[in-house]
Design a binder for these strands. Structure first.
Lengths: 189, 189
DNA sequence: GCTAACCTTCACGTAAACGGCAAGGTTTGC
DNA sequence: GCAAACCTTGCCGTTTACGTGAAGGTTAGC
């Protein structure tokens, strides 16, 4: 999986502005867009597009307004890519999820700074509502995927038994029940 | 969700061709496109589009080439809608899944009609390959969704405890660990 | 048998998620 | 200090999954 955590380190890239004599040596490691794209298997265009949609803001810009990304940006992009590729979320949905995350952070702060008990309870109730909505949506997805997966596993086992039987010379040893359903997942709605 | 299983029965629609004196009285119940759309919460345009993509073929056409759909068509459309809405599959992916299903049916037939043992084994091995590919893909999706769901559930419980504590007058009773991660799902790749 | 309601096939329009190119500014290596 | 390589912001093109008419045939109710 070529996991190198952070940039492949093409070269130390010399000029290092010597003005960094204050407490700033925690390897800032800012990457340019092509490096980010390479690292994550995206294109520069896609990354710019995500920014255009407001899904992220590069940590900084260079003197000449080159986009510069830090580790948090990378993490965020990995998150976006994961949801997009693996779960088929639209960028709009991803945007909502990310906003939810940020709202969560803000509310946490609000919660900490307000002394009013009733307001605190309200904040918690709102958070609960959001979380329950998310859970409902995810549970639906999860159930359907799991049902499909179960069906597919059932088939695999059936095929394996059948193949083993047939290889061993035996043939009609397994039950021949349930054969009609073409659609692997049934629905109710 | 206004579940009426089959069409709301607007009217029996009279002319009933009397040539059906053979074994044909299993309520054919053919629906026109707008009825199908209404029933399934789709648009007529979408249904035509699915046909255009080859995802289904209406059971029949009327004298004047009106599309007529039977129960199997409805089932197939429900399947398509489910994958599209709930699982975020693209219509292309859905097409592949449906084709897989049909290939499965065809192979089942081939299997039954060939007497050659080695060929039979090959058919089973091919089927196993396909099934394993499907399983791998689904397992990935499932794991990621499950991880998100777990995280969300964890949060819900945390919030519920917190709210209960706060309502009961107690306040700082829960552990305050693990607070930094913004992204609900971690990745490895 | 006539009209309203519904259907047909084009055909063009649109939002999403980028791809690709142009024109020009920036960085880097030597 | 200069060319190659990389980046910037437009801006137009493309695919997917339909929406929205237009122009005309079909069906249904009276």
């Amino acid at each position: 999986m070529t996991n190198e955590t952070i940039a492949p380190a093409a070269d130390p890239a010399g000029p290092e502005p010597p003005a960094a004599r204050f407490a700033e040596d925690a390897t800032p490691r800012l990457l340019k867009i092509a490096e980010v794209a390479e690292e994550l298997g995206l294109t520069a265009r896609a990354v710019r597009y995500y920014e255009e949609l407001g899904l992220l803001k590069p940590a900084a810009r260079s003197e000449g307004s080159y986009r510069l990304f830090d580790d948090d940006d990378l993490e965020r992009l990995r998150f976006i890519r994961g949801l997009r590729d693996d779960d088929g979320f639209s960028l709009a949905e991803i945007g909502r999820l990310l906003e939810d995350e940020e709202a969560r952070e803000r509310n946490r702060e609000r919660f900490r700074t307000t002394p009013d008990l009733e307001e605190r309870r309200q904040i918690l109730r709102d958070a609960l509502d959001r979380v329950e909505r998310q859970a409902t949506s995810l549970r639906g997805k999860s159930e359907r995927i799991t049902a499909m997966l179960d069906e597919v596993e059932r088939r695999r086992e059936h095929l394996e038994r059948h193949l083993a039987d047939l290889t061993a010379g035996r043939e009609p040893s397994h039950d021949e029940a349930a054969h009609g359903q073409p659609a692997p997942v049934e629905q109710t709605r």
